[in-house]
Simulated scan of single mutants.
Amino acid sequence: MFGILRTLLAINVVLLHIFNVPTLGNYSVSFFFLLSGFLMTLIMHETYGYSFKGFNFFWLNRILRLYPTYLIILVVTIIAIIIFPQLIRHPDLFMPKGGIEWIANITMIYPNVVPHRIEPRLVPPSWALTNELFFYCLISFGISKTFKRTFIWLTLSVLYFIGTYYFYNIATYRYSAIFASSLPFAMGASLYWITKTRTLINVRLFTILLVYILFVLNALFGHRYGFFLKELAIYFNMLIAFVLVYLLYTFKINQRIKKIDSYLGYYSYPIYLSHYLIAIFYSGIIGYGLIEGSFKLKMTAIIPYSLVLLLFCFFIVHLIDKNIDAYKRKLKKQELKK
């Protein structure tokens, strides 16, 4: 039941970037990394395997999952910059000037240990995909192939975070830097081994909702305290995410709910990637609830903005994502016949 969760996390990022709701979106990005660590380790072990063929099939599926939607949003953004330059009110949104900038924007691989420092980024949230791709690569090469490797990875990740407090105490290096993603990814990978060695428990939906509410409350209020409690809230968030992923993995749902969950999950990625683009169009064309001098919106605009965002994502899901998924299923059947 990860589809609804992913879409909720994407919505949390929208609330941060467009409506200035603090911290919840930041915590949700770390949550995404932890979930990815779990799911990528799971599918490498139980779907693809660590053979050369499995490695290739894993990356073919990752490319099909990430790039078609991204490239469509990239092209629409470029068209917007050319035709409606007056609507562009984001500091990272301007046309790349050289080959390296174009390659970075097309591949989502930004050449910096802190990817969000790279400008321009035609799709601003895509910096997190640099982090994702880096750890997808490590997982596909076997960093979480065994429990021992995963434990060493987790230990090194913890040491990295401890080191940032002593040697370079800047929050960026515990959030958006590539190596900052190592801890949630490693925690997610570790969770895979817990599910393999422990008996899965029966979980009620009410319990899952309570844990998610705890995650939201921790995100919304944890940053208001002093430095020590604020930092503690970050790691408490990761533990809540860890527990919630475990609960969702063990939660049993019927086929009807599974289909709904899967369908809603389609919206997470286009929502995450396109929310800045839609905010820019919304602010220039509709403008209701606009905070003057920016593309950001007041909470009074949440309904009309959300309708525009969901309409755009609806077309992305039905014209791109569903067709790509059908193609991936066809490829899988062909592989099974070999």
Rank of each mutant, 00 (worst) to 15 (best):
D321N: 13
Y168C: 02
A186R: 06
L16T: 04
I73T: 09
R117E: 12
L34T: 06
F179R: 00
Y50K: 08
I194K: 12
F141E: 03
K322L: 15
P68V: 07
M1H: 10
T164Y: 03
E292F: 04
A301I: 09
N105K: 13
Y235G: 08
L93T: 15
Y212G: 03
S144R: 06
T41P: 09
Y269G: 10
L8R: 02
Y276V: 15
Y269K: 12
W153K: 07
K97C: 00
L336F: 01
T23G: 00
F2P: 09
C137F: 15
L87E: 03
G49H: 02
I162Q: 11
K332M: 12
F33C: 02
Y327Q: 05
I43V: 15
L34K: 04
Y235N: 03
L122I: 14
I100D: 03
K333T: 12
Y136M: 08
F55A: 08
I278W: 05
M187T: 03
P304F: 12
G226Q: 10
K296S: 13
T172C: 00
E132S: 05
N105F: 01
F135G: 05
S306V: 09
K252N: 14
T155E: 07
I291W: 03
Y269P: 00
I88P: 04
K258M: 12
G265I: 05
T47Q: 13
I234G: 01
V243K: 09
I143R: 00
R329P: 01
P68Y: 01
I88N: 13
I152Q: 05
I18K: 02
K196E: 15
L35F: 13
L309S: 10
K322H: 13
K337S: 15
L15W: 14
L239E: 00
K97T: 06
W153E: 05
L5M: 15
I234L: 12
N61K: 14
I4K: 08
D261C: 08
G98S: 12
A219W: 03
I201G: 00
Y272V: 04
Q86I: 10
Y173Q: 03
T146Y: 12
E46Q: 14
H275D: 07
A180N: 05
W153S: 09
S144G: 06
P85I: 10
E46M: 01
R121M: 14
T300Y: 03
S182M: 15
V203Y: 08
Y276M: 11
L232E: 00
I240H: 08
I208G: 04
C313Q: 06
L159C: 14
W193C: 03
